[in-house]
Design a protein around this nucleic acid. Structure first.
Lengths: 166, 166
DNA sequence: AACTAATAAGACTAATATAACCTTATTTAT
DNA sequence: ATAAATAAGGTTATATTAGTCTTATTAGTT
């Protein structure tokens, strides 16, 4: 019941791109270094975002990444869907999932409401908002990074499932 | 971003137990057969629920399972927590997770709200409600079971991630 | 006391999903 | 041409999830 690390990476890419002046291209390596993300894996993530229509890329000299849509029209929910596919916290919530009892299954309905409530919250703020927020922050340089202390601003790597930092 | 199959199994166990008259013990094998779940794995799940204090077991002849708490005091959210641990859709939502920017990280706040909204919905109905709902239903006998069409009432096995039934 | 039917527990294996890496294209400005 | 960038896809590594197997332990019945 977690978003994947790749989704987290994607969110960071979008925040990054939403924060730059219009149409300027940012190198993927720059993003990778700034957030200390594995470059190759990040490039794969970039491709997914491109296919989803959220960002666009240009190759070659002066190439790089930029948003393909207005920053105020994209939310974390969109990124989640782009990376992990249509949200469904249980298989029975997939649109095309057939189940004889679906129409009167109470568990199904509860799960659906739970998912809807979550997605609604994830859709409330756009990356335009997020970029504004992050703008004033001191982004991580090597010294204040610790791999175990992942978060969206400075951080790096996902905490292990049961690993709780004291 | 899915609940695990084990959580699904656990929900079924609880619905099952919530539906029987007070204090009667149900054999784990019975539950396994009724829902076509792998018996050994189900037993492991039972143990987790026991340790979480949600059900109790008795060994030996006439042994079996029953709820350890009133059915109207347990929700799907409790089962989710029992099986998967404290809910945290991202590592930075763990209570003890340290992040320098946590206090003013907007992403953190959005995720927290999303998670809270989801958990709130999962906490609204108790297993007393769910058992009532299920009571009138025709539970699956072999003929109406198909492994690919998983859901909480009749069904059996989780659909694969991207497998969509036509 | 012996027997039988039940769960308990933990080690082990298998399957799947996620994350990361590596190599070789392809594109674009200079 | 050349250098600098992304594109693409195959491969490996790691983590998580799911399931199995074996051996114990418990409790009722005879």
């Amino acid at each position: 019941m977690q978003i994947t690390r790749q989704t987290e990476y994607a969110v960071r890419i979008l925040i990054e791109l939403a924060g730059v002046p219009d149409s300027k291209m940012i190198r993927s390596r720059t993003v990778a270094e700034k957030h200390q993300l594995p470059e190759k894996f990040l490039n794969k993530t970039v491709q997914i975002l491109v296919r989803a229509g959220l960002i666009e890329t240009r190759r070659g000299l002066r190439g790089g990444l930029r948003l393909a849509v207005p920053a105020d029209s994209v939310t974390i929910a969109d990124v989640l869907t782009a990376i992990e596919g249509k949200v469904a916290i249980n298989p029975c919530l997939h649109e095309n999932h057939y189940c004889e009892h679906k129409s009167d299954c109470r568990v199904n309905k509860i799960l659906q409401r739970a998912q809807d409530a979550m997605v609604a919250e994830l859709s409330k703020e756009t990356f335009a908002d997020l970029a504004r927020e992050e703008a004033g922050k001191n982004f991580s340089t090597s010294s204040d990074l610790r791999r175990d202390f992942a978060c969206f601003v400075t951080s790096v790597n996902r905490q292990q499932k049961d690993r709780v930092v004291p």
